[in-house]
Amino acid sequence: MTEALLVIDYSYDFAAPDGRLTAGRPALEIEAALVEKIRNFHEAEKPVFFMMDIHQEEDPHHPETRLFPPHNIAGTEGRELFGRVKDIYEEIKDAGHVFFIDKTRYSAFAGTNLEQLLRERGINSVVLTGLVTDICIMHSAVDAYNRGYRITVPASCVASFNPDGHTFALEHFKNSLGATVE
């Protein structure tokens, strides 16, 4: 099995205590496990994809403009990787198996070249990490499932600002998508 790690939306706005749409303490609590997972994939020279939400200020055409406060705005600190995840990205970003891809929708697959890059590398299994469990992680998981990928979600590497949504998503991954939740 050839696998890749997806690090989804571990940005300042989603993870920092004062981020615009922060998951707060749960986001901070996954940081160490997430950094360890990134380091393990990097050291094994397995692909690591940093998938980052990007928005334009007050975009009237984007559906999230009506649903959430402005977040991950292009050119702001809010959309930068956060904390030790930012540090490890800076350390490994020039490796040939590390990628940074902008995304404009919840799913890491929607409107990106992620699937092309995975297929080119013979990837058939994805490990989904980051924020937010019941939004971007869930939509990415559903798209991965629909594209035939095996899915693993390390519970220690995902978090949400909605505890009930987080629990629901973890169960959904296992029971509806056949994912491994570890």
Rank of each mutant, 00 (worst) to 15 (best):
A33Q: 05
L34V: 12
L34S: 10
E36A: 14
I38H: 06
R39S: 13
R39D: 11
R39G: 04
R39L: 06
F41P: 08
H42Y: 14
A44K: 13
E45H: 13
E45M: 08
V48P: 10
F49H: 12
F50M: 03
F50A: 02
M51Y: 10
M51R: 08
I54Q: 13
I54G: 07
H55A: 08
E57A: 13
E57F: 12
E57L: 15
D59Y: 12
P60K: 13
H62E: 08
P63T: 11
T65W: 11
T65E: 10
T65R: 15
R66Q: 13
P70I: 13
N72P: 01
A74R: 15
G75E: 07
G75N: 08
E77V: 10
E77C: 04
E77T: 13
G78A: 01
E80C: 11
L81Q: 00
L81S: 01
F82P: 06
K86H: 15
D87N: 14
Y89R: 05
Y89E: 06
Y89N: 05
E90Q: 12
E91A: 03
I92G: 01
I92A: 04
K93F: 07
K93G: 00
K93S: 05
D94Y: 00
D94W: 03
A95R: 13
G96R: 06
H97K: 03
F100I: 01
F100Y: 15
I101N: 01
D102H: 14
D102A: 10
T104E: 12
T104C: 11
R105W: 11
R105F: 13
Y106S: 15
Y106D: 07
Y106N: 11
S107A: 03
S107K: 10
S107N: 05
F109N: 08
G111P: 07
T112V: 02
L114I: 10
L114V: 10
E115I: 07
Q116L: 12
Q116F: 14
G122T: 06
G122N: 02
N124Y: 10
V127R: 05
V127T: 15
V127F: 04
L128A: 12
T129Y: 00
L131K: 03
V132Y: 12
V132E: 14
T133Y: 04
T133N: 00
T133C: 00
T133L: 00
I135P: 03
I137N: 07
I137L: 02
I137D: 01
M138Q: 15
M138I: 07
H139W: 14
S140Q: 09
V142P: 03
D143S: 14
N146A: 05
N146G: 09
G148W: 09
I151K: 09
T152Y: 00
T152R: 15
V153T: 11
C157V: 02
V158H: 09
S160Y: 09
S160M: 09
N162P: 05
P163W: 11
D164H: 14
G165L: 04
G165M: 04
G165H: 07
H166F: 05
H166G: 01
T167K: 14
F168L: 14
L170I: 07
E171M: 09
K174A: 14
N175L: 11
N175S: 15
L177S: 06
L177Y: 07
